[in-house]
């Protein structure tokens, strides 16, 4: 019985990993929109990490996050890898803190927004360190925060919708 559970878990993490990587690749194809911060993406792969953080384990969620970072590094270069990892790790850590507890004080939309905001803050800090210019906080910060709210709202709502189905699949 225990072996069967492990097999199921491996399969689940495989599917989630494929989903996260596939979604983040699809997002990288989105062209730059006027008015939106360049390189901003909906962060749909966050759904996979948020689900893993809430239903599987902290290690699994971080594993997928790091996998995503390595994938970004292979396909889009070293800077993209650093950006993906810094944002991803901060947002996954936040998802673990918010979703692992027995009773959460936040709804799905709140968790989605907090994760997206943390993702963008992590990336902004990395961008500042990489460029050595802290004025980026004022130049990009407000736009990134607004965008994070929008995408966090979307990913949180999607997570709420797919959660029952995913729960059935993973139990």
């Amino acid at each position: 019985m225990k072996n069967k559970n492990i097999t199921k878990k491996i399969a689940l993490i495989g599917v989630m990993g494929a989903l996260a990587v596939g979604l983040s690749y699809l997002e990288s194809l989105i062209p730059a929109f006027p008015g939106f911060p360049p390189g901003a993406k909906p962060g749909l792969s966050n759904i996979a990490t948020m689900f893993l953080a809430s239903s599987c384990g902290i290690a699994d969620a971080f594993f997928i996050t790091i996998l995503k970072g390595i994938f970004a590094g292979i396909t889009r270069g070293f800077t993209a890898m650093l950006m993906s990892l810094s944002g991803g790790i901060l947002s996954t850590a936040m998802a673990c803190i918010l979703l692992r507890g027995k009773k959460s004080n936040f709804g799905y939309i709140g968790v989605g927004i907090i994760c997206a905001v943390c993702h963008n803050i992590g990336q902004l800090i990395t961008a500042c360190i990489l460029s050595g210019t802290w004025s980026l906080v004022f130049g990009y910060g407000p736009l990134l925060l607004i965008f994070a709210m929008l995408t966090g709202f979307i990913t949180g709502s999607i997570l709420k919708l797919v959660m029952p189905a995913l729960k059935r699949f993973s139990n």
Partner: peptide
């Protein structure tokens, strides 16, 4: 877990305020 809780609205307002504060220099 619900879709939207009271704390979520607090989070949204906090982010909006932070946004405005960061925008001050460009006004």
């Amino acid at each position: 877990m619900k879709l939207l809780k009271k704390n979520d609205i607090l989070v949204i307002s906090a982010v909006l305020i932070l946004c405005l504060v960061l925008l001050i220099p460009s006004f």
